[in-house]
Write a protein that binds this DNA or RNA. Structure first.
Lengths: 203, 203
DNA sequence: ACATCAATACCGACTGGTTGGTATGTGTCG
DNA sequence: CGACACATACCAACCAGTCGGTATTGATGT
C-alpha cells in the first residue's frame, strides 16, 4: 500500500528548480551543476532527462507556460460576466501577484527570450510560443469587450493583447532595476487607466 | 600636426564592441575574448582598461547612457514648443529608431538589469541609474504638459515617465520574441494613443 | 512461485575545452 | 629613466557533456 505521494519526480524537481534559478541568475548565468544542486539531484539524472542544457530550457519554458495557464484559467476573475470588468480584473489579478521576492513573480519567458533570441533559436521560439498563447487567451476577452463596447479606432484585439504583455514585461524590468514591485504596480495602474479610457468605462 | 582622427582609442573600441555584443548575446553569454575579438584588441588591453568584466559592464552602461543622452538631446523633436506635441514627438522619434537588426536598437540597460539584478549589484545599480536619468528628462516634459493641459487624476509626471519606459522595454522584449520590430511599433502606437486620451489631444 | 531478461532511472568520476584573470615582457613617449 | 599602453603566455577554476556502472521495476517463460 502506497502511503503518500512523496517528493515530485526528478524531472519535475529539475524543472521547478529551473524556474527559480534561471529567473534569479539568467540562463547563461545558470550552470547545470547549479540546477542539479538546487533540485537535489546529480548530473547523471539531469542528462538522463534532458539531452542538453538548451533542451532543458525549452522544457522549462513549457513548464512555465503550463503553470501560468493553470493559474489564470482557475483564477476567480474568469467568472465575471461583463467582458470589460473581466478584462480589468485580469490586470488587477496580475497586480495581486506581485508579492514576495522578484524571482518568484517575474516571467521566465521574458528572461529567456532576452538572453537567447540571437544565440538559441529553439529557446526563443519556445518563449515566443507561450507568450503568444497567453496573449491569445487575452485576445478573446478583448474581442468580447469590443463586441459590447464598440471597437476603438484602428486597434485590433490582437494588438491590444500584445500591448498588455509588453507593459507587463516592461514592468518586470523596471521592478528589477528598482529592486521591488512598486513601480510595476504603478505601471499596471496606468494600463488599467488606458483600458478604461479606451472603452469609456464609467466608474 | 595631427592629420586626422584615426580609429577611436582602445577603450572606446572596447565599449562600442560591448554595446553590440552584449545586446546580441547577453552579459553572461559574452566572454572577455568575444569582446576583445570584436574590438580587435588583446586581453592584455582589456584588463589594462577594466579591472574586471563586471567593471567593464558598468562602464558600458555609462557609455550607453551617454550615447542615448546625446541622441535624444540633439533630436529635432526637442525644438517643438507645445509640450504635448513634444511629448508625442518623443514617442514618434522612438518609433523611428526601430530600424535595422535587433541588437542595434534594443536597450543595453534593460538587457543588463534583467540578467544582473540579483547577481551583480553594481551592474544593476548602473542600469537603474541611466534608465532613471532618461526617465527624469521625460518627466520634465510631462510636467510641462500637465501645466498646460491639466493634471489627470491621481497620476504624477514621474509615474507616467516610468510607464513610458516600461512600454518601451516591454516592446523590445516582444520584438525579440517575434524576431522583428513591428510589434514594438504597434506598442508605441498604443502608448501614443494613451497619452492623447489622457491629455484630451485634438487631432 | 520463481528465475530471467530488458528497460528505465539514476549515480558520480572523468574529459576536453573555455573562462575570467594574472604575470611578465616590450615598445613608446616625455 | 619611468610611466603608460599594450602584447603574449599562462593558470586554476569551471563548464557542458560523456561513460561505465548499479538499483529497481515489470513483463515473460516455466
Amino acid at each position: 500500500m502506497v502511503l503518500a505521494t512523496t517528493l515530485p519526480d526528478t524531472k519535475t524537481r529539475l524543472l521547478d528548480a529551473a524556474l527559480l534559478v534561471i529567473r534569479t541568475k539568467g540562463y547563461a548565468g545558470t550552470s547545470v551543476d547549479d540546477l542539479c544542486h538546487a533540485a537535489g539531484v546529480t548530473k547523471g539524472a539531469f542528462f538522463h532527462h534532458f539531452k542538453s542544457k538548451e533542451d532543458m530550457a525549452v522544457a522549462a519554458a513549457a513548464h512555465f507556460g503550463a503553470m501560468a495557464e493553470s493559474l489564470f484559467s482557475r483564477a476567480g476573475y474568469r467568472e465575471l460576466s461583463d467582458p470589460l470588468e473581466r478584462l480589468l480584473a485580469y490586470v488587477d489579478f496580475r497586480k495581486s501577484i506581485l508579492q514576495g521576492a522578484l524571482p518568484e513573480f517575474t516571467c521566465l519567458l521574458g528572461t529567456l527570450v532576452q538572453e537567447a533570441y540571437e544565440t538559441h533559436p529553439a529557446i526563443a521560439a519556445a518563449a515566443n510560443r507561450y507568450i503568444s498563447e497567453h496573449a491569445t487567451t487575452l485576445e478573446a476577452d478583448i474581442s468580447a469587450v469590443m463586441a459590447t463596447r464598440g471597437t476603438p479606432p484602428t486597434w485590433t484585439a490582437a494588438s491590444l493583447a500584445l500591448y498588455t504583455q509588453a507593459v507587463i514585461q516592461g514592468a518586470f524590468i523596471l521592478a528589477k532595476a528598482k529592486g521591488g514591485p512598486q513601480v510595476a504596480v504603478d505601471c499596471l495602474n496606468h494600463l488599467s487607466c488606458y483600458l478604461k479610457l479606451l472603452f469609456n468605462h464609467k466608474p
